[in-house]
Design a protein around this nucleic acid. Structure first.
Length: 645
RNA sequence: GCCCAUGUGGCUCAGUGGUAGAGCACACCCUUGGUAAGGGUGAGGUCGAGAGUUCGAUUCUCUCCAUGGGCACCA
């Protein structure tokens, strides 16, 4: 065999008489590197391959060593095996299925005759740690498919057998650690001891192959890291996320109330409603600016509407409906069909387009009970919904205008970190290929024109048209889908919508469904998590609290309260006979952005002393200036208080 | 809808086969105190709902409801 050349990242080349494995290349460089090698990336690809992979001539090789972020995938993959081994060591009757690496960890699905209890998990974690200490060497073997099927069949591992059969390969790879082995593609560590920290997290039910018609398995979630410190940091992050849970925050801040009589349908309290209405008003300002007209449409329709729109055929189980005098009525799950009726109410000319109508109508969707979640998945909600009816050649400007509108809103709210996804035609679809071509390319063109990066999700579009999904990435780097823009060729057709063109003949408009915040409910939930409840002043239910030091400052405080109220500020005067520290603690917990203390000094000099939520104090601030600056801050909807930067 | 867990005063949680307790919040009293909890007294719960086992159930069993972790769903 001629010389095999392996290219390394520093442009150097290693030559071999044979096709080497990743590990052999590492050994040729140094024993220390070989010891630390956990995998590799080859030919510039992001996928991490096994260190036992045999490399053909002219491979570009980047070795992944312990401690790197890339190595986590290998470590977690192996940790999943260790966990499976531990489970079968403790409970031999449990059968294994699959155990992939996921973001921040891994899981393994087991076919178990019993459900794992929290005590079981503790036992399991102990066993896993014991196996890590044992530090078995991991070896890879190639088996023929027949041998693999026979072996796993004998062991009663029927799910493995099914996987192997479905693979349809002649050979499969098996990874062994001690006497335990599993069918696996890899990659895996050299020795189990290279997994430094494992934490078993929780259990869940999960369907075999994600299909609810299949048997349900027991899933165990866990995670692994390169060091105990990294693990501790991750667990801390989980704690932080828990503290920011909008269900906890919205309860603690008194924004939302839930009652079992209304599952999935939150009450917004007098405090919560302020946030809700402020957001709505803000969107209305945008509608004014971007040429939308707000409409109000019916809540309940004769079900014939949804037969016409197609929702009756495709969405019926989610629609609340009722029979009155033998007539079937449905509570609207979305605004679009109603808007189509409104479009058809008058004859439209091309001069009327684009016709943009916005609707804050309340929607109801009968979600499956297990899907409900806080404010982010509810049965009744309100979208910042609008529909744009336009000509195909107007799509470009409309999409552009939407993205500019959205960017403005997100920046205003301190949410500038977002990603855009363009979903293209799925297999099952309506509309001609020409129209799809045009719509998809115009979406891409508009994004490019605005210099916006986006990711294409091939085949992920709705059956009625391509769409943009906006993923907001919050302060804890978690993605949330909020905004969306969807082109729709279907509904205008179902409702036979027309306009008269310049050529005096009739044409069909395209319909755009779009939302920026998504639903107010979901948005508020996400925004609470993003801000940890510390809202900008203009969105705060209470903007100012005035605290007197003794009752002798009462008059000054009452006057100040009136002046702030007159300036349109949401203020309350805490005149209770309590110590200042006590009042501050309460205001701090309620996240009131401005805490004003009034004592002798302030009364004497006509000033206010301000404490911010950061704990920063500005004493002796001119009272009139304070009111003016605060008013400006609120009117401009500033993100930060005027006293910080 | 499915698997598992949970459900005790407004909130956070303890506890028991013989009908319940703490802290915070609330009410009243004392305290007039400068930046995250001053002190005292008191009121408040048929222990998620229904059925069963039992002499007796908040505690055990079953069903239902709700919530939580996931799965599936999110035309």
């Amino acid at each position: 065999m001629s010389n095999i050349r392996i290219h390394l990242p520093d442009k150097s080349i290693k030559e071999f008489e044979f096709e080497p494995t990743v590990l052999q290349v590492a050994e040729s460089i140094g024993s220390r590197l070989a010891k630390d090698t956990l995998g590799a990336q080859i030919n510039g690809q992001l996928e991490v391959v096994d260190l036992r992979t045999v490399l053909p001539n002219d491979t570009q090789l980047k070795i992944i060593t312990k401690g790197s972020d890339e190595s986590l995938e290998v470590v977690r993959h192996s940790a999943a095996h260790v966990m499976a081994q531990a489970v079968q060591d403790i409970w031999p009757e449990v059968k294994v299925t699959i155990g992939p690496v996921i973001e921040n960890g891994f899981f393994y699905d087991f076919d178990s005759p019993f459900a794992f209890t929290p005590e079981d998990l503790k036992k399991l974690e102990k066993k896993v740690n014991h196996l890590l200490k044992k530090n078995e060497v991991v070896t890879k073997e190639i088996w023929s498919t027949e041998k693999a099927i026979e072996t796993f069949q004998k062991m009663g591992e029927t799910f493995k057998v099914e996987i192997i059969k479905d693979l349809g390969e002649e050979e499969v790879s098996i990874y062994k650690q001690g006497d335990w082995f599993d069918l696996c593609r890899g990659p895996h560590v050299q020795k189990i001891g290279q997994i430094k920290a494992v934490k078993i997290l929780h259990t869940a039910g999960a369907y075999w192959r994600g299909d609810e018609n299949n048997p349900q398995l027991q899933r165990i979630y866990a995670t692994a890291f390169n060091s105990k410190e990294d693990l501790a940091e991750h667990l801390k992050l989980l704690e932080e996320a828990k503290k920011r849970d909008h269900r906890k925050l919205s309860k603690d801040l008194g924004l939302v109330y839930n009652h079992p009589f209304a599952p999935g349908a939150p009450f917004f309290t007098e405090r919560g409603s302020i946030i809700y209405n402020e957001l709505q008003n803000y969107m209305r300002e945008g509608y004014q600016k971007y040429g939308y007209h707000e409409v109000i449409s019916p809540q309940i329709f004769d079900n014939q509407l949804y037969e016409k729109s197609g929702h009756d055929a495709n969405y019926k189980e989610n629609i609340f409906s009722t029979n009155v005098s033998e007539r079937e009525f449905s509570i609207k799950p979305m605004n679009c069909p109603g808007h189509c009726l409104l479009y058809g109410a008058t004859k439209k000319s091309y001069r009327d387009l684009p016709w943009r109508i916005a609707d804050f109508g309340r929607l109801h969707r009968n979600e499956k009970t297990g899907a409900l979640h806080g404010l982010t998945r509810v049965t009744t909600f309100c979208q910042d919904d609008a529909h744009i009816f336009c000509r195909v050649d107007q799509l470009f400007d409309e999409i552009k205008s939407f993205m500019i509108f959205l960017d403005e809103v997100y920046n205003k709210l301190g949410m500038s970190n977002y990603k855009i996804f363009l979903s293209t035609r799925p297999e099952k679809r309506v509309g001609s290929d020409e129209v799809w071509d045009q719509a998809e390319s115009v979406l891409a063109k508009a994004l490019k024109n605005l210099n916006l990066d986006y990711t294409v999700n091939e085949g992920d579009g709705a059956f009625y048209g391509p769409k943009l999904d906006i993923m907001f990435v919050d302060a804890l780097k978690r993605p949330w889908q909020l905004g969306t823009l969807q082109c729709d060729f279907n509904m205008p057709n179902n409702f036979d919508l027309k306009y008269v063109g310049e050529d005096n003949s009739t044409h069909q408009p395209v319909m755009i469904h779009r939302a920026i915040l998504g639903s107010l409910e979901r948005f508020i939930g996400v925004y609470l998590e993003h801000t940890a409840g510390r809202l900008p002043t203009w969105l705060s239910p209470q903007q100012v609290v005035i605290m007197n030091i003794t009752s002798s400052h009462d008059e000054y405080c009452r006057n100040l309260e009136q002046e702030l109220k007159a300036a349109g500020i949401r203020v309350a005067y805490d005149d209770r006979n309590e110590k200042l520290g006590y009042k501050i603690r309460e205001a701090q917990l309620k996240q009131i952005p401005y805490m004003i203390t009034i004592g002798d000094q302030e009364v004497e000099n006509s000033t206010v002393s301000v404490r911010l939520l950061t704990g920063v104090n500005k004493n002796g601030y001119n009272k009139t200036d304070f009111i003016t600056n605060l008013k400006n801050e609120v009117n401009n909807k500033n993100l930060r208080t005027f006293l910080e930067n």
